[in-house]
Amino acid sequence: MKAAVLVFPGINRERDMARTLRLVSGQAPSMVWHAERKLPAGTDLVVVPGGFSYGDYLRCGAIAARSPIMDAVRAFAAKGGLVLGVCNGFQILCESGLLPGVLMRNENLRFICRDVFLKVERSDTPFTRGYNAGQVIRVPVAHGEGNYIADGETIARLEGEGRVIFRYSSPDGMIDPDWNHNGAINAIAGIANDRGNVLGMMPHPENHVEADIGSTDGRGLFAGLAKQLGAAA
């Protein structure tokens, strides 16, 4: 696995992400500055990490999405390369047009920082092959703008094509408004593009990969990617 983690001004979760990638795959990722125009040769996974690129000015992810490196990411994705966006990374992928829809202010207007439960809808994607379909995982969220929305036609297409990959759920996998902490439509926590090679999600699986932290539920995502990309997981 030859991962590249993008770094934008104001991003603050890139080291968590790099650490997890190294821990799970055994290979340290390259850190790629936003002003670069090319990804390192041989890159097989691009990760857009969480944080607050450009201080969330204008709209979350809006300015980062127009960075020089994002043209290279678009070209990489167009060739089928795997792209993972977490939290602000999900917002950046939506703003850049790599994923549909937008992440609005949380319904209760609060910044939410706590563990949530996610139902893994599919296990037949490069990002979720480390899980079973229907499995529930516990991972943290930390965001003020995670309330996913898109027009009705887009939502119908996402649902119809099985592109909702993660949903906020109860600990036993029930989809219930009480467990949909940010008010996202259909409790959507993570979606894929039409080709299935770009995934965006609000929660932070990279923070639950070690038993010392209290949960290793995020590990499956990275172990699955490492397996997919041929590294020892």
Binding site: L58, A62, R66, P100, G101, V102, A150, D151
Partner: peptide, 9 residues
Amino acid sequence: DKLLANTVI
């Protein structure tokens, strides 16, 4: 179109 507005919303 390019930056100031997100025309999705």
